[in-house]
Simulated scan of single mutants.
Amino acid sequence: YRYEGLRFTDFENVLTELRDQLDSEFGPYHKRPSALLYKAWVEEAGGKVRGPREGQTSEDFNDVSAYSKGRIGGRGSDDIWPLHLLDLKDDNHMSVTFKLLHDLPHVIQYYLDQFVFPLTMEHHHEKISASGQDLGGEMLFSKRVGFSGTPSDLLPEELGQCQYDEGVDGQILHFLTNEAIVSSRLMESQWSVKKLLDDILKADPPYHALLDCGALITGMSNYEVAKYLLTNGLTTEFDGVAFLDSQDRKMMLMRHGMNVVRLNQSGIPSHRRFSFYDQIHTTGMDIHQCID
């Protein structure tokens, strides 16, 4: 959000929530807490909220027709409408307000606190939990036939010391730094998501998979990435693009008909499909790839 600001739909949610709070509060509109918060945002962003002048009543301030004719407030036409008169369905009102506030840190924090964090950070004060130590030790099972996990010395005491397979780490580093296998290049300074995808589309011989380890592909859903690849020059050697949907399901966008089906129902062999792994799904996804 600090790089790109709020999306327009997110901004609509913020203003809708703020308006709902405003309607539940008491007192003159321009003195209610939600209106004052909105006013503080606008002023922090360098704008001004139209408001009553000395001697004007709150009833005058609530008259939208008088407001439109310029009899209220006495400020310039570039000033922002107050919260209670902001028409959330008016494209002009929303576009001006969105342009001013969508990347303001205070608004972003409000959106995170009101919408994102309550949804994604639910927790209980007491939890039942277990770890690999419990599973591998004698606490649950008196006999264990195996213990799988990342090699380390943090093994349950009952299993003894980890016996490393000598040379494995060295082989991994060797292959990852072997120029006959791995290559790298710098993107131009004015790169964009679509330019990056276009470069991948132009590769010859073609790539079979895109792993977005650095979360460079932003502003597009996994489906939209798959559709962009198929409609913008992905070689006909591929009959579809495999991706993970919002429910972590392995899906396939078929070239023929542009239909989305489950990966295991697509019937496309591994050498005839392109795979896209977004940053969240770059590990732990068992999607078979063809042998290069």
Rank of each mutant, 00 (worst) to 15 (best):
G219L: 05
V64A: 08
Y38N: 07
Q133A: 08
S58N: 11
R71K: 14
P269T: 08
V182K: 11
M251N: 05
G160V: 08
L112S: 08
D248I: 07
L201G: 01
Q190F: 10
F117L: 12
D212Y: 07
R75H: 11
V116L: 09
D199G: 10
G46V: 11
Y38V: 04
G137V: 05
S68R: 12
D204Q: 06
I291V: 14
L196N: 00
V116I: 12
F26T: 15
G167P: 07
N92E: 14
M254G: 01
F141N: 01
P156N: 01
L6H: 11
S142D: 06
E188M: 02
D278P: 03
L234C: 02
L22K: 05
I217H: 08
G51H: 11
P105M: 09
L173K: 10
H288R: 13
S131V: 02
G149T: 09
Y110K: 04
L173N: 10
T177F: 15
L86A: 01
G160C: 03
Y164K: 09
L201N: 04
T150A: 04
Q21R: 15
L85Q: 13
F243C: 12
A209I: 02
R185D: 02
L244S: 12
L230Y: 08
A35T: 14
M285F: 02
T150N: 03
V49R: 08
